[in-house]
């Protein structure tokens, strides 16, 4: 079973890299979003410094979730999902491994490039560190919550927008604690440990719970 899961994990990573799709487009989308915000709020660096963590968190949230709609759909179309459904490996573990592959190829690059955009949004070193750490802790929750939405809309040809509508309200807690942990501007010192701990708890809860919901949705869609 371990071998099968490892093989699945590398398959996910390879597909993400080979099609050149998900990962790189996700980063470009993130860049576009982060660039658009200053046009909306104005180039005032003080204001941008205050809004920076919020802007980057929203950009990461949208890039992660919008990249997820194909998580199970490609497998659904080419029939590999049926193989996964009938395999001896529990579907919950398969979902978890697929999410891990997706997180590694699309969310982790975002976490790595986010501080660069943070510099452009006038974040200082401490703020950058907080931001990166909060994203690192929070993005697994986003990937897994998104996976439930992706599983529920798997049979829909154009489920992307619906998935975003389904999933975004559920991602509000992650956003709240993520932005809090990242610090809402340098002028407003909020305690760092508490929101970060809750963010971690949310991620762990998502890791523990979401695979079951997603697997159930996939089983029903396969009927």
């Amino acid at each position: 079973m371990g071998d099968a899961l490892a093989a699945l994990f590398w398959r996910e990573v390879k597909i993400a890299r080979r099609t050149g799709g998900a990962a790189s487009i996700g980063i470009v989308f993130f860049l576009v979003l982060a660039t658009i915000f200053p046009f909306a709020v104005g180039p005032d660096l003080n204001l941008l410094a205050r809004l920076g963590p919020a802007i980057l968190w929203i950009a990461v949230l949208l890039s992660t979730l919008l990249g997820l709609d194909r998580l199970f759909q490609a497998d659904h179309e080419d029939g590999s999902l049926d193989l996964m459904l009938t395999s001896a490996t529990p579907l919950e573990l398969i979902v978890l491994v697929k999410c891990a592959g997706h997180w590694l190829t699309t969310a982790l690059p975002l976490v790595i490039v986010a501080p660069l955009f943070g510099l452009a949004l006038a974040q200082d070193a401490a703020a950058l560190a907080r931001l990166t750490l909060s994203l690192l802790v929070g993005t697994p929750a986003l990937t897994l919550i998104g996976a439930v939405g992706a599983a529920v809309t798997v049979s829909l040809r154009r489920g992307g927008l619906l998935m975003a509508v389904l999933v975004l309200p559920l991602a509000i807690p992650v956003l709240i604690f993520g932005v809090s942990a990242a610090g809402i501007g340098a002028t407003d010192p909020v305690p760092f440990a508490a929101p970060l701990a809750i963010l971690g708890a949310l991620s762990l809860a998502a890791i523990a719970g979401a695979p079951f919901a997603a697997a159930a949705a996939l089983r029903y869609a396969g009927e």
């Binding site: 439930v148 529920v152 309200p169 509000i172 807690p173 709240i176 719970g209 919901a213 159930a216 949705a217």
Partner: peptide, 17 residues
């Protein structure tokens, strides 16, 4: 499934809000 996921999430959303 979405309703149940929402039911689990609503208290968390309430708490975080």
């Amino acid at each position: 499934i979405m309703t149940l996921v929402g039911a689990v999430n609503l208290p968390i959303i309430k708490f975080s809000v």
